[in-house]
Amino acid sequence: MLELFSRLGRRRTSKDVAKERLKLVLIHDRANVSPQFLEMVKGEIIKVIQNYMEIDEESLDIQLTKTVSEEGEGVVPALIANIPIKNVKSVGK
């Protein structure tokens, strides 16, 4: 709570905004987040998850976006995946 107050108390200057925006855009630039790159990540994720459950490969969605950090570092990049499950295999039991 105290931390929240101190963060609110500090005026967010234009350079803070600049820095935050830059950091995010550079993550995309550097990762060269091309469709191919995300396809590669997607392929690997599917492989691993398929060992445990049956998923809907067609509607699997994965994106590089941003989210608010819980450690209070402001906005941080996040890899968000939406993976619809058709059936859980019994190997896990």
Partner: peptide, 16 residues
């Protein structure tokens, strides 16, 4: 401008 927080500082840029 750096002092007012309206320009990224040297540290900010090196950090990035």
């Amino acid at each position: 401008m750096v002092k007012k927080g309206d320009m990224m500082s040297i540290e900010d840029i090196i950090d990035i």
